[in-house]
Design a protein around this nucleic acid. Sequence first.
DNA 1: TGAAATGTTGGGGCG
DNA 2: ACGCCCCAACATTTC
Length: 505
Amino acid sequence: MLPSAPDRSAPAAVQKMPLGLVWLRRDLRLHDNAALHTALQHCHKVVLVFVFDRDILDPLLRRGLQADRRVEFIHAAITEMDAALRALGSALVVRHARAVDAIPDLAAELGAQAVFCGRDDEPAARSRDATVEAALQRDGRHFRTVKEHMIFERDEVLTGQGTPYAVFTPYRTAWQARYAAQPQLPHATRLQAADLAALPDSLQQPLPGLDELGFAPTNLRTLKLPLGAAGGQELVDAFTQRIDSYDQTRDFPARKGPSYLSVHLRFGTVSIRALVALAWARMQAGSSGARVWLSELVWRDFYFQILYHHPHVVQGAFKPVYDRIQWRNDPGQFALWCAGQTGYPLVDAAMRQINQTGYMHNRLRMVVASFLTKDLGIDWRWGEQYFADHLNDFDLAANNGGWQWAASSGCDAQPYFRIFNPVAQSEKFDPSGEFIRRYVPELARLSPQDIHAPWTASAQALRAAGVELGKSYPAPMVRHDLARAETLERYAVVKAASEQGSART
DNA sequence: TGAAATGTTGGGGCG
DNA sequence: ACGCCCCAACATTTC
């Protein structure tokens, strides 16, 4: 029997297994890697494997999405890890196959007694892992998942009644209390050559290229996004210089306020434990920027545990009454939103940012989500899917939570009558129009007064700026005041149902 | 992590 | 001087 938390340097009372397989998924780094750390506690030697899972990638290819920045990001990260392992005399084993087949097969081929990996609570991942576990157990091998990419998961933060939180603020209070008592510190494990099993020649293959995986190159490299764990550390170092002013700068998309670490958190090229430790220490020192940024990291855990406890949010509204809403769902309007051709400059700038870079500023995610659901009356799931396909940092739990928040259908969502005014948001958060000019160059010569709502500019100002509404830039596709009124009517079914509900009780 | 509608107040123009 | 009106400016309510 395995002790629950043996120290690697503790007296060797533990019977270690000869060989463990470490299956990397969304923890693409060698330092502070919980699965690797745990494997080394229980095994004399380890082998590390990454699978380009056909169950994930083939559907992308079938849908024509062969240029995917995330596949390229992953490829860069594992290339970096492979180089580090080769420097230690080994290599990363990489498979392009169905993970449910590849992992049990590889464990058998190597004769590994156990497979270790970071826990993933997305429904599809749980189902995949259950299949892998069953196959391994048939062969008499162990399968062990460990908490990896969260600080507190599942039932680790509960209310006094023992139920999961559904409101963020009390959740955060409880989360912080638990962290103060039990800080989840980085693992100090350093992988050494002696930890790595010798690989048979058949497994020392060079990494497959992107093209061999069926994917086309993207513009990822030209974006100068720092890649891999080294790139993640570079961003952490840079953000450490800005974190104290995060609360002052984060809402302005033209400014370098955010950490830009979301994609690195998605793929584990940075450690959440290290980031929280950084934020916590700075918060203790009185940094309001660090306090607000820590909140964002807590949101991440919050939505992970919402998905774990309420997996139905993947299909429908967290609050089922919101599934009664009759959406307009006009495909032509959806296409204009996707293309950044709505005629609302800030919305269009934001959509062009995601299309060109795979990133969108968080404030703008709220703006475009509000516009899609509450100005166009389009089902939030259409927007959720578009983000899933295009965001480098796409994460099911956070993306679903964010969209349901915007659509007002989620736990702790904004009330349904809270409707962003896309012009007011623009004037407030991009006052000079600097961000708009960056992504909507056809409006670049408009003044800060005119750029947020070009249709209100004088004919002379438009002519002077070289803007011809309806030609060089679209007229607004809907009138916000009318759309707002329609949305209040559309959401009235929710109000009626909840009033009926409260009347009954 | 709103915005619009409605209500209130107070200063200034003006007869 | 005074009352009246207008309307910012701010506060409150409503969606």
